[in-house]
Simulated scan of single mutants.
Amino acid sequence: MDQRISFITLATRDLDASRRFYVDGLGWTAALDVPGEVLMLQVGEHVVFSLWVDTAFEQEVGPITRGPGVAPLTLSHNVATREEVDAVLATARAAGADPVHDAVERDWGGYTGYFGDPDGYRWEIAFNPGPIGEVVLP
Score class of each variant (00 low, 15 high):
residue 96 G to H: 07
residue 111 Y to C: 11
residue 24 D to H: 07
residue 97 A to Q: 05
residue 124 E to M: 15
residue 10 L to K: 15
residue 95 A to N: 02
residue 22 Y to C: 06
residue 91 T to E: 03
residue 68 P to S: 12
residue 76 S to K: 12
residue 110 G to C: 11
residue 52 W to P: 00
residue 15 L to C: 06
residue 109 G to W: 03
residue 116 G to T: 05
residue 87 A to P: 02
residue 22 Y to I: 07
residue 79 V to M: 06
residue 39 L to N: 05
residue 117 D to F: 11
residue 24 D to L: 02
residue 13 R to I: 04
residue 116 G to E: 03
residue 21 F to R: 02
residue 109 G to L: 12
residue 84 E to S: 05
residue 118 P to D: 11
residue 108 W to Q: 05
residue 114 Y to I: 11
residue 101 H to M: 13
residue 12 T to G: 07
residue 76 S to I: 08
residue 8 I to Q: 09
residue 18 S to C: 13
residue 110 G to E: 06
residue 95 A to G: 04
residue 35 P to L: 06
residue 96 G to M: 06
residue 41 L to W: 02
residue 29 T to N: 02
residue 59 Q to Y: 09
residue 62 G to F: 07
residue 44 G to C: 01
residue 25 G to C: 09
residue 55 T to A: 15
residue 13 R to Y: 05
residue 65 T to L: 14
residue 48 V to S: 07
residue 64 I to D: 03
residue 87 A to C: 05
residue 49 F to D: 03
residue 74 T to D: 09
residue 17 A to D: 08
residue 97 A to R: 03
residue 83 E to H: 10
residue 24 D to P: 01
residue 52 W to F: 07
residue 82 R to H: 09
residue 73 L to T: 12
residue 81 T to G: 10
residue 75 L to N: 13
residue 121 Y to E: 00
residue 40 M to Y: 01
residue 109 G to N: 10
residue 60 E to N: 07
residue 7 F to W: 10
residue 26 L to H: 03
residue 62 G to Y: 05
residue 122 R to L: 14
residue 51 L to S: 02
